[in-house]
Design a protein around this nucleic acid. Structure first.
Length: 243
DNA sequence: CCCTGATTCGC
DNA sequence: GCGAATCAGG
């Protein structure tokens, strides 16, 4: 399989949606997850929380002893033909202030307790809210980071597809991956790979990856423990609606 | 073990 | 440019 324009586009969007390389590979078909990752990097797509610590400082010595390392534990920073002006290794790439769905976490129980105007100001309309301890919940009931907050290296474990990729052309008028862009709500509905998997598609709340409505679901103040329910776990995109 | 993404390097 | 092999952390 070759990287056609459409396939690249799909890759970008799925990558941006926080899907794992494996999921993307399966969805695209004909490619391995390595291919997806390799392509993603070649495309310059933003790095995502990887299990591997990003030791920028010491990373130098961690080159590639596997390929050809006879027996020379020479940690000497091989003076490679380093480009004079530019930085040697653009390892630290932390641009996207935009939160992305991923970190699984003890689903934050969200009772249908509404936030009145006189209550906590957890309005999504206030992206730069001074509140430091304002957690939010992502599409699977995942704890999310606030905009501008760099994600701690939490293990991304988006729900796995349980069904093989299907042609899935049963969806018409639905917002598919191909329809995603910076302006529309990326709130996923259904599971990737399922015939009816699609995205919200509403206009996003500026500064957020979701529309106003889904921001309301995604960004909520952490409720007091006492008010939590044991496990209101919500499957990936399981029709997030107030209970 | 499994998973993940990052990186390298032969093609 | 591509991606298998490999690395490395969780």
């Amino acid at each position: 399989m070759s990287w056609t324009d459409e396939r690249i586009e799909t890759l970008k969007k799925m990558w941006d949606s926080g899907l794992t390389a494996t999921q993307i590979a399966e969805e695209l078909g004909g490619v391995s997850r390595n291919a997806v990752i390799g392509k993603a990097h070649r495309l310059g797509l933003p790095s995502r929380p990887s299990p591997v610590k990003s030791n920028e400082a010491k990373a130098a010595a961690a080159a590639a002893p596997a390929a050809a390392a006879p027996a020379e534990p020479k940690p000497a920073p091989a003076p490679k033909p380093a480009p004079p002006p530019a930085a040697p290794r653009p390892q630290a790439a932390a641009p996207a202030p935009a939160p992305r769905p991923a970190p699984p976490a003890p689903a934050a129980p969200v009772d249908d307790a509404e936030f009145d105007s006189d209550s906590e100001a957890a309005e999504p309309a206030a992206p730069r809210a001074p509140q430091p301890v304002l957690r939010s919940v992502g599409p699977g009931g995942f704890i999310r980071q606030n905009p501008g907050e760099q994600a701690p290296p939490s293990t991304p474990a988006p729900p796995r597809r349980l069904v093989p990729a299907k042609p899935s052309e049963a969806i018409a008028g639905k917002t598919t991956l191909l329809d995603l862009n910076d302006k529309i709500c990326k709130w996923p509905l259904g599971h990737p790979g399922e015939p009816d998997f699609h995205f919200c598609g509403e206009k996003v709340n500026p500064g957020f990856p979701y529309c106003v409505e889904h921001c309301g679901h995604a960004y909520q103040a952490q409720l007091p423990r006492r008010d939590r329910r044991p496990a209101p776990t919500m499957p990936f995109g399981g029709t997030p609606r107030p209970r």
